[in-house]
Design a protein around this nucleic acid. Structure first.
Length: 286
DNA sequence: GTCCATGTTCTTTA
DNA sequence: CTAAAGAACATGGA
């Protein structure tokens, strides 16, 4: 469930309990969530201190006192929580860090039923995110224009691609396109410069607002304290198929793009004039 | 039993 | 060749 606002909220709630925490022990490691395969996480982490936790796209990056880093990706159903040692452990808990801060002890737990998430060791090298686009909270109109004009895909598909722009997922792409009044099937190479600039502002605005409301909880997502988010109540299109658009009262539509549910207002986000999304046919190429 | 789900990566197709 | 579409991954809820 976690897109940028949820990941940021997890970090914001985890940091007060984890910064400068000493890792006493590492347990409940499920081998197939650790990358690279076979990496000895207990050896690397036991006795280290967590200096900081930062975010890059949807990645939660832990910075250790020895200069090494690793990140946790929550995938679809991952949860990262701070819990009292004696509190019952959830099913599908795949990593537990026993920590001590001064006189306070506790645990950081990673739980992920579907196991689409994982723990990724980075070491201390540079260029640890070379395959990722600019962060969605920092993106500038010029950067976005450059990235989008490099492809001819529907804008929805391009925005879902983490190498184009890091941090957006299915919910916030739909919400951002609605905020910008752009139909998801619009091809990126047909977006005007001003549309891209508006989209850029919309993305940042939607994300900041979602963070303010502590993310969207549809089912699984919780912050590090176990608290649900509130932004799902403020979604304008996501999950609102058939309901009235808050702006124009038209019925919100749902289609499938890139294998994902895609929601938009047919009036506020007018369909592209030429060649919508469909794949090219033999006749098109001749 | 069916379909669907907040994500990423590998494979196949065009 | 590259770009993009599609399938696969694993679990649970409706």
């Amino acid at each position: 469930m976690p897109e940028l606002p949820e990941v940021q909220t997890v970090i914001d709630t985890l940091l007060p309990r984890a910064r400068n925490a000493y890792i006493v022990a590492v347990s409940h490691v499920r081998a197939d969530v650790v990358h690279p395969a076979g990496f000895d996480l207990p050896v690397a982490l036991t006795g280290r201190t967590i200096r900081d936790i930062t975010r890059r796209g949807k990645r939660i990056v832990f910075v250790l006192d020895d200069g090494n880093r690793f990140y946790i990706h929550l995938g679809m159903t991952g949860r990262l929580t701070a819990a009292a040692t004696d509190r019952e452990r959830a099913l599908h808990t795949h990593l537990v860090l026993a920590i001590r801060r001064g006189a306070t002890v506790g645990e950081i737990r990673f739980c992920d039923p579907r196991r689409f998430g994982g723990i990724f060791w980075l070491g201390c090298g540079d260029a640890q995110d070379a395959d990722m686009g600019p962060d969605s909270l920092q993106i500038t109109p010029a950067q976005l224009l450059k990235r989008l004009s490099a492809s001819r895909r529907p804008v929805k598909n391009a925005l879902m691609d983490q190498s184009v722009l890091a941090g957006l997922g299915n919910i916030y792409v739909d919400e951002s396109l609605f905020a910008a009044g752009i139909h998801p099937e619009t091809r990126t190479d047909s977006l005007a410069r001003e549309q891209v600039a508006l989209l850029c502002r919309s993305i940042r605005k939607v994300l900041r607002r979602a963070i303010r409301h502590r993310g969207s909880t549809l089912r699984d997502y919780r912050d590090a304290d176990g608290t649900a988010g509130g932004f799902q109540k403020l979604h304008r299109v996501y999950g609102r198929e058939g309901e009235a658009c808050h702006i124009c009262r038209s019925a919100i539509q749902r289609i499938v793009m890139a294998g994902r549910s895609t929601h938009f207002c047919p009036a506020c986000q007018p369909a592209p004039r030429r060649a919508p999304v469909r794949s090219r046919t033999r006749a098109d190429r001749s």
